[in-house]
Design a protein around this nucleic acid. Structure first.
Lengths: 242, 242
DNA sequence: GCCAATTCAGGACATATGTCCTTTCCCAAT
DNA sequence: ATTGGGAAAGGACATATGTCCTGAATTGGC
């Protein structure tokens, strides 16, 4: 991590994401812009948090590691997203490890200032509420989805979600930031089993493999399998209520 | 559901849970106390929510039903807890169904008033943040735990969590509010499989069955199996940060 | 271009879990 | 007490998933 001393760019981000009201005058001097490279850890499970981070550029991966060493990827996030919000409110150690999967820009602010100047600032509180309820919503979906559906369905859903926004029938493979084993850990299964299911999909003509890259061939077929249930990136338009 | 016209009791609850600052003067006239009987639905998945409820007495069960008809019990809650908070903030349909598993008292307030008089009221916003981050924390744990551990471990953990607070080696069976099939749905497995695992536990001398009731015999043994991971009721002391 | 080291795909087997169905047991209404 | 219904437990089988290991493929360094 390195601090980016570029007030102009910071302001640019604040404007782009309409954060001016969220971080009001007294907080501004304590905002900093930070850059992370692919693979950098932004924060680590179990440690004492110090900063609230706002992801404004790039892509991050959030995961947890069990005492037995298993890794579970909880989500991939793109802007606008906040890291350390739950820990800030609850005063607990960092819940999950966060890693940059691309070049990343984050706005950081120390808890102390956030607390000192922000604890009564309704727009900030509402912003946190928006973000956290969204996270809750996604995690809630994720929990039910994972517990109620076999890997086959989860993989179909996953493939749809990662290939939808990008180019047409996007590929997805090893050096493309998100590796296959990340995908396995995200779906909550073993790498071995993931391969097994991918092969089934190949046989059904739903996808094709090409040099470790998965190419979606039949989105409709995958949708039928996934049955509505899509891993929601569900970015609500926000603020309908508050 | 029936409204309980007893201002005194309502005030009693507000004091007992220190909600005076949360629901300030302008909100008070719009608070009502409601009673639900065992089995009553407090709200239903998919519907449009209207009230924010605060659970002040009794026990409720939160579950979701998939399109295929499978039920997943997400949690059991006791006071203090809030229902409809996420929906209030996000303006979305009700996420999960909530059912009373005992006689229940809840304080209800319509969203319109909450919004009109509360949207800038920092103590209320902070209260919601506390509650929602706690929910997030629990759900996050639950997700990883379920995805990373076999039913055996989850059951051990579950048994410990439901028998810890109550009497010594508490029983847990059919008419005791929480049925075995509820337990199965909570753990995220089938009733059949739950029975299978219970039998293993019996053989190992960890528990005993007696007329459909499970009696914990060896808490230490269960702890060893669960390995630290307990379904967290994790009620933080709250408010360290905000 | 060749080799070692690493990553990737898949085989073989064991275990975990789900589904369906049968059996047993309890209780309530007669 | 008798009986029918329904809950509770378990048997039998199929499927889903995990673990371990091997062979193939790929890459970087020389």
């Amino acid at each position: 991590m390195k601090e980016i001393q570029d007030r102009e760019q910071l302001n640019h981000y604040l404007r782009a994401f309409q954060l001016d009201s969220v971080f009001h005058e007294p907080l501004l001097p304590h905002l900093s812009l930070y850059g992370f490279e692919q693979g950098d850890l932004i924060c680590t499970q179990g440690q004492a948090p110090e900063y609230l981070y706002v992801l404004v550029n790039g892509k991050i991966k959030i995961y947890t590691t069990s005492s037995e060493g298993k890794t579970l990827v909880l989500s991939f996030k793109t802007p606008l997203e906040v890291i350390g919000d739950v820990e800030y409110v609850r005063g607990t150690p960092i819940l999950n490890t966060v890693e940059a999967v691309s070049s990343v820009h984050m706005i950081g602010i120390q808890y102390r200032w956030l607390h000192k100047y922000g604890k009564d600032h309704a727009p900030l509180l509402r912003f946190l509420l928006e973000i956290i309820t969204q996270k809750f919503y996604i995690k809630s979906n994720s929990l039910s989805f994972n517990l109620m559906h076999p890997v086959e369905v989860r993989l179909a859903s996953y493939l749809l979600s990662v290939t939808s926004d990008e180019s047409d029938s996007r590929l997805e493979g090893q050096q493309s930031e998100v590796s296959l084993s990340d995908a396995a850990n995200f779906i909550g299964t073993s790498y071995r089993h993931l391969n097994r299911v991918i092969r089934q999909f190949c046989n059904k003509g739903l996808v094709e493999r090409d040099k470790g890259v998965i190419v979606v061939k039949d989105r409709n077929g995958l949708s039928a399998l996934a049955g509505h249930n899509i891993y929601e990136h569900h970015r609500g338009k926000g603020g309908t209520r508050l």
